[in-house]
Computed example of a mutant assay.
Amino acid sequence: MSRTRDWPLYVVMAVVILFLLSPLIVVVGASVTTSSFLEFPPRGFSLKWFEEVLGQEVWTTTLITSVKLAVVSMAIATVVGIPCSIALARGDFRGRAAITAFVLSPLMVPSIVLAISLLIIYSRTGIDLPFWRLALAHGVLTAPYLIRTLTAALEQVDSSLEEAARNLGATPVGAWLRVVLPTVRPALIAAMFFAFIMSFDELVVALFLSGPRLTTLPMQIYGEIQYNLSPAIAAVSTLLIFLTVAGVLVIERVLGVRRLVR
């Protein structure tokens, strides 16, 4: 009887899920069209746009560039974020709230403001290494996501466990690596993936700081949308969707999505 009364709720849930998935359906459908224009529903069925994307060096080059940039930015955010998270979660010092607000400020500052500020800094300091200045900028953008996620996880860990390890002879670093890190490892992995995804998908800062010698995948897609609205854009997006789904399945297989969410 209860299931009968709950059917309107199931209908609403199905409509909401369909609405959320509709952009993905449109993108995948537009990627297999035989037409030369980006349209939905597709005309016929063809994989020629995937062949074109995989056969053009510009797409593979920009994809590799974006992956390298995301990996380096994720590493920078991790190196900076772990000590900050430990200090914010374990420290009890004056000005902690102000420091927390400062560290997380890139989350509140518009990307274009941050991009212009970094462009002025790089121009005055004479830094002319497009990849590394963009990697540092992405590290600034992604570090708050890692810090916020990891700090929340560290605050849930009982500090007495770390104290017990130190009483048994472990150094502060050893206690963190052997006791605390295994406990917060799912949260750390989730935070690193946040940093990777945010860097990989970032466009505004890249437009200001990349220069003519460096093009990321979002920049290439943006340029194609402006000057050449072809189904190749949908094909690239479809490939990214399937790669994302594959990554989630691998995480589920190795660690479990539920653990990462917790």
Rank of each mutant, 00 (worst) to 15 (best):
L150Q: 10
P144N: 06
Y222C: 08
L229K: 01
I241C: 14
V173A: 15
Q56R: 14
A190I: 00
L168P: 05
E252S: 08
V205Y: 10
F196G: 02
L209Y: 08
T215G: 08
T238V: 01
G91C: 03
A75F: 12
M192G: 13
I116D: 02
P172K: 06
M219V: 00
L21M: 15
I25S: 07
S123P: 04
F93N: 05
T151H: 01
V250C: 10
Y122A: 04
I17N: 09
R213K: 12
I233A: 09
Y122S: 06
Q220N: 10
R258P: 00
V109R: 05
P218H: 00
V254Q: 13
A98G: 09
L21H: 11
H138P: 04
P212L: 07
S31N: 05
F45D: 08
G211C: 10
L260R: 07
A70E: 11
E52F: 06
I99T: 01
A195S: 14
E202S: 06
F50H: 09
T216A: 13
T60P: 06
T65M: 13
T125A: 13
M1K: 03
F45K: 00
V58F: 15
V58L: 15
T215R: 14
V27M: 14
F45Q: 02
F242T: 03
R5V: 04
I99V: 11
W176I: 01
L154R: 02
V257W: 14
V113C: 14
E224N: 09
S105E: 13
I225W: 11
L88C: 04
G247L: 02
I127H: 04
L141F: 10
L177E: 11
G29H: 05
L243Y: 09
I121P: 09
S73R: 00
W132T: 00
A98P: 01
R185M: 14
D6C: 03
W176Y: 15
T4S: 14
S31R: 05
E224R: 06
T244P: 02
D158S: 04
T244Y: 11
S46W: 07
I25C: 12
S199M: 08
E162N: 05
Q56K: 03
T60C: 07
G95T: 00
E252K: 06
A152M: 13
W49T: 01
G139D: 12
V67K: 02
T149F: 11
L9D: 10
T65G: 02
V254T: 05
E51C: 01
F208W: 12
V11N: 04
S237V: 06
L136P: 05
V113H: 11
R253Y: 08
S66F: 04
V28T: 04
T34C: 03
A101V: 01
T33C: 01
A234P: 01
V179I: 14
